[in-house]
């Protein structure tokens, strides 16, 4: 059993459930075990990455109503379906913040790579995480990164950033590339289109281009 208790600054206590060993009976036992701790304070149950059935929620609700001295305030989840069921049953349910998701996206194994040279045509550099290039990316060179890409020079080659992620950015001091790709979103540029202090990023699903000056 990997359930945990956590103090929150608004509600009181949050029970963090574990996706792998999640089971209604286990959860019940856990609550009974920690009854002394939970007594007198409000608490919520947080369920992440797991879809609950209506029966499960009802069972939990009945169980919690029968235990004395507990103030159950509702659920917290990152899955929309859970929330819809809860609301239809009249149980409060919060959607957990995006911040949590973002942390999960960034795996611990991700690397940050520094390239201290100019990437020439035919060169290909990849990184599971961020990529910093202290030099130019010339036409015909390819750059692929799971995270962000920073080019401390001119960016003229093809770049893919944020592969498999929902948020990432590409920055370059000078930009004159034909196309770029961030988080599977594509942007194509005209010939001779160029920017100084270029930044392209995807946040909450939108690709946004920023720059300090157009042209050379």
């Amino acid at each position: 059993m990997n359930f945990k208790l956590r103090g929150t600054n608004v509600i009181g206590i949050e029970i963090l459930t574990d996706n792998k060993s999640f089971d209604i009976d286990t959860l019940k036992n856990f609550i009974l075990e920690k009854r002394q701790l939970l007594r007198g304070s409000r608490f919520i149950i947080s369920v992440e990455d797991r879809i609950l059935t209506k029966e499960e929620i009802l069972e939990l609700k009945q169980f919690l109503e029968n235990v004395e001295e507990l103030t159950f305030c509702g659920f917290k989840t990152n899955i929309k379906e859970n929330r819809e069921i809860c609301i239809s049953l009249g149980i409060p349910c919060d959607l957990s913040e995006m911040e949590l998701e973002k942390e999960k996206e960034r795996a611990e194994t991700e690397e940050i790579k520094f390239i201290k040279r100019t990437l020439r045509s035919g060169d290909k550099v990849t990184s599971t995480g961020d990529l910093v290039i202290l030099g130019d990316v010339n036409p015909g060179a390819e750059v692929e990164a799971g995270g962000n890409v920073y080019v401390m020079g001119s960016l003229r080659g093809t770049v893919k950033a944020g592969i498999g992620k929902s948020e990432a950015e590409i920055r370059a001091l000078y930009f004159e590339a034909p196309r770029l790709e961030i988080c599977n979103q594509e942007k194509i540029f005209d010939r001779k289109e160029s920017y100084i202090n270029f930044r392209a990023r995807v946040k909450s699903g939108n690709l946004k281009i920023e720059f300090s000056k157009k042209g050379r």
């Binding site: 020439r120 045509s121 035919g122 060169d123 010339n138 036409p139 015909g140």
Partner: peptide
């Protein structure tokens, strides 16, 4: 012209 520059760039990378 761009085609020649790109090829020259590739060759430079190979020489390095």
């Amino acid at each position: 012209e761009m085609a020649s520059i790109r090829d020259a760039d590739r060759v430079t990378g190979l020489c390095e």
